[in-house]
């Protein structure tokens, strides 16, 4: 098939005079150098990517969370687990690496992201498996079975706890995290769904029964995979817990 053209195929900018040739060459060279530099920086960051966190690991002794000094003591509270049995947090997690998180199953963002990230981290070969304890801040909707079903999406070994609002508030105080609060329903949307404001960090209790590092929202699977072995093995300085 031949394609008719009415214009000659000569290079249109090949006219004599101060043409764009050298300028274009210079621009092309600069673009190429820019691309190479950018690629180099990108490569460096890509390699470092797994160490890069929302919390600035480099400024924090290499931890990917926020260091707490003195360490927070493992809190003493008893709630109800998803099978309806009482769960004494201090006694049943004593001496074990434990991650404590307050959230709720209808949470649209922070809670599923934290759980999903944790699940991903625990699938990394060589990562020690901590006890993960999820305390609901929405006991009205998060019944034992509902909590169990939601947690099972991430890991069947994750522990879910519920209780009365007063018991949960007491647990939050004991863990020294911000208290949760039920937010007003969005009347404009016409549904009765509501959100719950709650602490977004995961508190990591180490075998010495203290929490030396807390992990804010934004902590990634690679961060957990790097920190969990350290949390387990770290020799923490003896300090008096407040």
């Amino acid at each position: 098939m031949s394609e008719t053209t009415t214009l000659p195929p000569s290079p249109p900018d090949s006219s004599p005079g101060p043409g764009p040739g050298p300028r274009i060459g210079l621009i092309a060279a600069l673009c190429a150098i820019g691309a190479v530099v950018f690629l180099g920086i990108a490569a460096v960051y890509a390699v470092r990517g797994n160490d890069d966190t929302a919390t600035g690991a480099d400024d924090n002794d290499g931890w990917h969370g926020t260091e707490v000094s003195p360490g927070l003591p493992r809190p003493d509270f008893t709630l109800t687990d998803t099978s309806g049995r009482p769960f004494d947090f201090a006694a049943q997690t004593k001496g074990r690496l434990t991650l404590l998180f307050f959230g709720y199953t209808h949470c649209p963002d922070v809670c599923p992201a934290h759980m999903s990230v944790l699940r991903g981290a625990l699938e990394v070969p060589g990562t020690p498996k901590p006890l993960v304890v999820f305390v609901t801040t929405d006991p009205a909707r998060d019944t034992g079975p509902a909590l169990r079903k939601w947690l099972d999406q991430y890991d069947k070994d994750f522990i879910g706890l519920t209780g009365t609002p007063e018991q949960i508030a007491a647990a939050e105080r004991a863990a020294k995290v911000a208290g949760s609060v039920r937010l007003p329903e969005d009347q404009s949307s016409g549904n009765s769904e509501y959100d719950v404001g709650h602490a977004a960090q995961i508190v990591a209790y180490t075998p010495d029964d203290l929490a030396h590092v807390v992990y804010p929202f934004g902590t990634r699977a690679a961060d957990w995979a790097a920190d969990l072995p350290r949390l387990l093995d770290e020799e923490w300085p003896q300090e008096s817990a407040s």
Binding site: P108, A113, G120, E123, P125, G218, R220, A222
Partner: peptide, 21 residues
């Protein structure tokens, strides 16, 4: 990759439970 490489997708609200990795 053993872990998600993109922060933006790893921490995004999940879509239909599709896990980041």
């Amino acid at each position: 990759s053993a872990t998600p490489l993109y922060r933006v997708y790893e921490l995004a609200p999940r879509v239909n439970g599709f896990e980041a990795l």
